[in-house]
Design a protein around this nucleic acid. Structure first.
Lengths: 224, 224
DNA sequence: GTTGCGACTAAACCTAAGTATGGTCCTCCC
DNA sequence: GGGAGGACCATACTTAGGTTTAGTCGCAAC
């Protein structure tokens, strides 16, 4: 249910399979969780501290993080904040033996997937992990699309970017030309170059790309 | 800070001002909160039960709801679920004297703005209300735009909708014509009609509308 | 100092888009 | 049975979009 693969025999590890990371200073907790996740065919990597987790090279597959709110050095909440500040957006599931409501609120506001109180039912943890992995998969997919678009956009010259902004805002070539003070033919040539570099198959395609890139918040367009 | 208006003298009520709704069976809590919100110039309406709140006609201004988790009949959480099911998306701030973490998690997952434990600091409540009102304002703005677009889209004939889908997907008139089995000139005429009815100022404009309306999940477009 | 590149432009040419005007055919409704 | 409106199409015309070829200018790197 959690992955698409058979649960019972720990099948061959696949580089595409999601990973569950566990951070807890209690070895017995780490073992119990590892066993739980392995029993449903999920790859699991456990750490005794936040520091160790950071040493580990970031996995390039959908993953999530199980975190005890009470960590050796810094609190789970602070670690969550640090990850966010560092641009690491792995979904987090908190566990706690004696947490309180303000902690819970802070964690959830900061985007935590769930906040489980010990002892919790295995199924609750597995459900949370499923949600977290799905969320990460979506996030990664979107990030990938965005990265590709940004890479393409980076190959545009300043002038081409300017033209792309105005064209996707709905201005006609003639209007773009007047706006930036060049001849219409020049705009056409820039435009062709933009379509090629961005690999846009049509103007609507380019408009959608601009939307994803957050370009040109202008409202309207051209009047005839 | 909470509203844009002076706090001290309870100025004239304005139909555009946001409203804070309070539901609590304890009259002293209702009074205390009403006083707090009035002191910063916020319109406040208090109720003793969820039922009374539902009797009240829904306000057409940005608003939020302060809810005790323990309500006379049904719990605050259940009421939250009911509102969601009824399509009422007012942001909710929960208060509780003796809540627990699972309740908190459930409320936050369901979109609650905050979850305050009594006794709370006035400022925490005011901050939560500010956030909630802002969130509702944005939601309302987006809903309004969407409603207008849907109204315009509803005036399109079936054929026009079909053409709009294909055109915003990036097909050329010629390709649209082949796709639906009509002459190119017919597509052009539909297209002009679409631009008029949707009040789109340009093709990019129409593409954005289609995006908001969730039309045409096709990826690409036309090849030359 | 020349090579590469971004920016710009003209001329010529072709395709796509858009707007009348005028008309047919069909269906639903009063 | 006589609209009203949706869908369709042709002819004619105008404007917009886009490519190719060919060339100028300026600047920065080698």
């Amino acid at each position: 249910m959690v992955t698409g693969r058979a649960a019972s025999p720990p099948t061959q590890a696949n580089a595409e399979d999601p990973i569950v990371f566990v951070i807890d200073d209690d070895a017995s907790v780490r073992d119990a969780l590892s066993n739980l996740f392995r029993s449903v065919g999920l790859r699991t990597v456990a750490f005794g501290s936040a520091h160790e987790f950071l040493q580990h090279k970031p996995a390039d597959v959908p993953s999530c993080l199980i975190l005890d709110i009470r960590l050796p050095r810094l609190s789970g909440l602070d670690f969550q904040a640090e990850l966010a500040k560092a641009g690491i957006h792995i979904p987090i599931i908190f566990m706690t033996g004696h947490g309180d409501i303000p902690m819970t609120v802070r964690a959830m506001k900061a985007g935590a997937v769930d906040f489980l109180t010990k002892p919790f039912r295995d199924q609750d943890m597995l459900d949370a992990v499923t949600t977290a992995i799905d969320r990460d998969r979506n996030r990664r997919d979107e990030a990938k699309v965005l990265a590709n678009l940004r890479a393409a956009f980076a190959t545009l010259t300043p002038r081409e970017r300017q033209v792309m902004t105005l064209v996707t805002a709905g201005l006609m070539n003639k209007q773009v030309a007047a706006e930036i003070g060049v001849a219409e033919i020049t705009v056409k040539i820039h435009r062709g170059q933009i379509m090629r570099k961005m690999a846009a198959k049509s103007l609507p395609d380019l408009v959608r790309m601009a939307g994803i890139l957050g370009i040109g918040r202008a409202s309207g367009g051209a009047q005839t």
